[in-house]
C-alpha cells in the first residue's frame, strides 16, 4: 500500500526545466531515499510535495487523492509535514513557540512525545531558537514537523552540516520514528547512511530519475557506489 505516489511529475520555472517525468511511490511505513548531487532538483521535488512550488505536469497522490494545486497549509493539514532544507526555523521565537506554532491549541501529549525524542530541546524550551547549535536546530526542525503527528514525513538533507555523531543520531532517529508508524521520504547526499535505513531509493540526475530500486540493489550497484558512496565511506 502506497501512501504517497508521485506520477510523471515535471516542474518548469521560467525557461528552466527543473524536474522531468519523476515517478516514485512511498510505501506506508516505508523509508524512501532520494539521492543525488547538489542542484539536481531534489529540494524542488520536496517543495512540490509541500505545495511551495506548483508542478507544471503530473500528479502527486496522497492516499489516492491528487494534491497538486493545494496550498501549503492544506497539505500540512492533510498530514504531510516537512523538515525542509535550511531548517527554516523561527529564529526570533522561543523553542517552545517553534514547536507549538501552527498546530492549534497546545497538545501536551504531543509535546511530551517530541521532547522525549529530543531531550536536548527540553532544556532549552524558553530559549530563542536562533541561539541553538546547528544540530539542535535540526532537531527542532524535525520535532516541529512531528508535533503535528504527520502521516508522511519529508526530510530534506537532515544531516547536512552536522558532526558525524549527530548524523548517526539523526539516522537512528529516522529509523525509530519509522518504527512508530510514519512513512518517510528522505533526501540525502550522505548516500551510504541513507541506503542503510531506506527500503527503496532513487537517484536523480539533471531533474530525472536515472536509477530506482530497492535500497539493497542500489547499494550494491557499481554506478551508485562510484558516484555516491565512494566519498562517504570515510565518514562512517
Amino acid at each position: 500500500m502506497n501512501v504517497l505516489e508521485i506520477a510523471n511529475l515535471s516542474l518548469r520555472i521560467g525557461v528552466q526545466d527543473i524536474l522531468h517525468d519523476i515517478s516514485l511511490d512511498v510505501a506506508e511505513k516505508g523509508i524512501y531515499a532520494i539521492l543525488g548531487a547538489n542542484g539536481v532538483g531534489k529540494t524542488s521535488l520536496m517543495r512540490c510535495i509541500s505545495g511551495i512550488y506548483h508542478p507544471t505536469g503530473g500528479e502527486i497522490r496522497y492516499e489516492g487523492k491528487n494534491i497538486v494545486g493545494l496550498k501549503s497549509h492544506q497539505i500540512v493539514d492533510l498530514g504531510i509535514l516537512q523538515a525542509p532544507e535550511g531548517r527554516q526555523i523561527f529564529s526570533n521565537m522561543s523553542v517552545l513557540e517553534n514547536l507549538t506554532i501552527g498546530g492549534g491549541p497546545l497538545k501536551t501529549a504531543e509535546l511530551d512525545r517530541v521532547l522525549g525524542l529530543f531531550p536536548k530541546l527540553k532544556e532549552r524550551l524558553k530559549q530563542g531558537a536562533g541561539s541553538l547549535s546547528g544540530g539542535e536546530q535540526q532537531m527542532l526542525c524535525i520535532g516541529r514537523a512531528l508535533m503535528r503527528r504527520p502521516k508522511v514525513l519529508l526530510l530534506d538533507e537532515p544531516s547536512l552540516g552536522l558532526a558525524p555523531m549527530l548524523v548517526r543520531f539523526i539516522f537512528d532517529l529516522v529509523e525509530e520514528i519509522r518504527a512508530q508508524g510514519y512513512s518517510i521520504l528522505i533526501v540525502e547526499q550522505n548516500a551510504k547512511a541513507a541506503l542503510r535505513i531506506a527500503d527503496r531509493a532513487a537517484v536523480i540526475e539533471g531533474g530525472k530519475i536515472v536509477m530506482e530500486g530497492s535500497a539493497k540493489e542500489l547499494a550494491s550497484d557499481s554506478r551508485v557506489a562510484d558516484a555516491y558512496l565512494g566519498g562517504h565511506v570515510a565518514a562512517h
Binding site: 509541500s50 505545495g51 511551495i52 496550498k71 501549503s72 497549509h73 497539505i75 500540512v76 493539514d77 509535514l81 516537512q82 525542509p84 527554516q88 526555523i89 523561527f90 529564529s91 526570533n92 521565537m93 513557540e97 506554532i101 501552527g102 498546530g103 516541529r144 514537523a145 503535528r148
Partner: peptide, 19 residues
C-alpha cells in the same frame, strides 16, 4: 504567533501549515 512567524521566516511559516 502566525504574524510573528511570517515576519521571521515566511517560508518556514508555510512548512508548519500557516495560511
Amino acid at each position: 504567533l502566525s504574524i510573528r512567524a511570517v515576519s521571521n521566516n515566511p517560508l518556514g511559516a508555510k512548512y508548519v501549515g500557516i495560511n
